[in-house]
Design a protein around this nucleic acid. Structure first.
Ligand SMILES: [Mn+2]
Ligand SMILES: [Mn+2]
Ligand SMILES: [Zn+2]
Ligand SMILES: [Zn+2]
Lengths: 138, 138
DNA sequence: CCTCAAATAGAAACTATTTCTGTTTATTAT
DNA sequence: ATAATAAACAGAAATAGTTTCTATTTGAGG
């Protein structure tokens, strides 16, 4: 948690009880969560808490590098703990479609390619969906 | 257009005026479009036309292989002409963030990898955003 | 032509997200 | 400790994109 505190401070963000709880959800759960899922968990701990705050907090936590957005094919936003918090490196994610666990893919084919097919590459996105070893055994 | 007719028939879909127009938008425009953008163009040609039909048609055209979904980071759906219509092969897309043009990336790092990091790979998604040669020139 | 499944418009519902306003809270400086 | 200040917050309302529903129309095949 110390590490996250530093990241927050770096980003000029306060450590609030809600924020701390949100970070814990991701650290403990080891899976990605939607804003609504975070909200449901949060409501168990706090009498009053608003969904807009959850949205704001998740975005803040992405900005300061604690969380990462995970693009899925539904219309919801998904967030996961970005282990690049342990040192910043370029990576993408693989997600288990059964249990929602998120792992990292460290080698990326696009990598730091400056040009592809005559295009100046600005950004890229890779998402792999699969079934993790645990769920395969199950 | 003959090619598209065949694809439609294969998929058990009728050739309707609206469908034909939609295909033309993509063939002529050479860029990806959102349902709303398609709708706006369609309304210029047809007095009466409904947005739900546009959504339905775009999905139908994906199913029969004429269009492909292009995932962007906004909340809208994006569709583009899938040139794999000229023969089915695995590919992804690169999009120009200036003009919206879509090109194909034929070699894919994930390709037919069956396993990554212990995960049984089910699906994957790659999207590259850049600035095309034309737009780079200014 | 006739038939019938497929396609359609338009209205209404829905869902996820964002904006707004006034209040509360955590940090920092006294 | 206490005060000042900027950030975080709840709750209500608004928005945007998409989907569902129902009754009507249309195109393809016989
Ligand atoms: Mn990560
Ligand atoms: Mn394609
Ligand atoms: Zn799993
Ligand atoms: Zn371009």
């Amino acid at each position: 948690m110390q590490l996250y505190l530093e990241k927050l401070k770096e980003g000029g963000l306060k450590l609030t009880p809600r924020r701390q709880a949100i970070i814990e959800f991701f650290v403990d759960g080891k899976s990605h969560l939607t804003p609504e899922e975070v909200w449901k968990k949060l409501k168990k701990r706090f009498d009053r808490c608003g969904l807009p705050s959850v949205y704001r907090n998740l975005e803040s936590l992405v900005k300061c590098g604690i969380l990462t957005k995970i693009q899925q094919f539904d219309r919801k936003k998904h967030y996961g703990l970005c282990s690049a918090v342990h040192g910043d490196y370029h990576h993408h994610h693989i997600t288990c479609i059964e249990c929602g666990k998120v792992d990292e893919i460290k080698d990326c084919a696009i990598g730091d390619a400056k040009k592809i097919k005559g295009y100046k590459v600005v950004s890229h996105f890779i998402q792999v969906n699969g079934i993790c070893a645990d769920c395969s055994r199950g």
